[in-house]
């Protein structure tokens, strides 16, 4: 199953090696959760601050139960802000 993965700001470092830019496609098995992807990429918990699936925020307590579906976009940021 294909997942579109976007890692922004300093999290770009956690993209699989060889990936240019901030986006890639990831092969995941069925029933893979958001938290499993975060763990697979090795992103520390406090760095996975803003976690969005198709633009919708996934709360920390829901990340282990939120199963990813084919074609969804998972985007993650460390704590960021602007104005």
């Amino acid at each position: 199953m294909k997942l579109r993965l976007k890692l922004y700001a300093t999290l770009g470092d956690y993209l699989p090696s060889g990936v240019r830019g901030h986006e890639t496609t990831l092969d995941i098995g069925p029933e893979t959760t958001v938290q499993q992807v975060i763990d697979r990429l090795g992103i520390p918990e406090e760095q996975a601050h803003l976690v969005l699936v198709d633009g919708v925020y996934v709360e920390p307590q829901a990340r282990s139960s939120r199963v990813l579906r084919e074609g969804e976009v998972l985007a993650i940021w460390p704590p960021v802000a602007g104005g």
Partner: peptide
């Protein structure tokens, strides 16, 4: 020591929001 004011803003400035706000529609 705050991740936003100590790291995020100096590195990317307010412009870090461009992709965030776009993703959330």
């Amino acid at each position: 020591e705050n991740a936003v004011t100590g790291e995020g803003l100096p590195k990317y400035g307010t412009q870090v929001l461009m992709n965030v706000i776009n993703e959330i529609g």
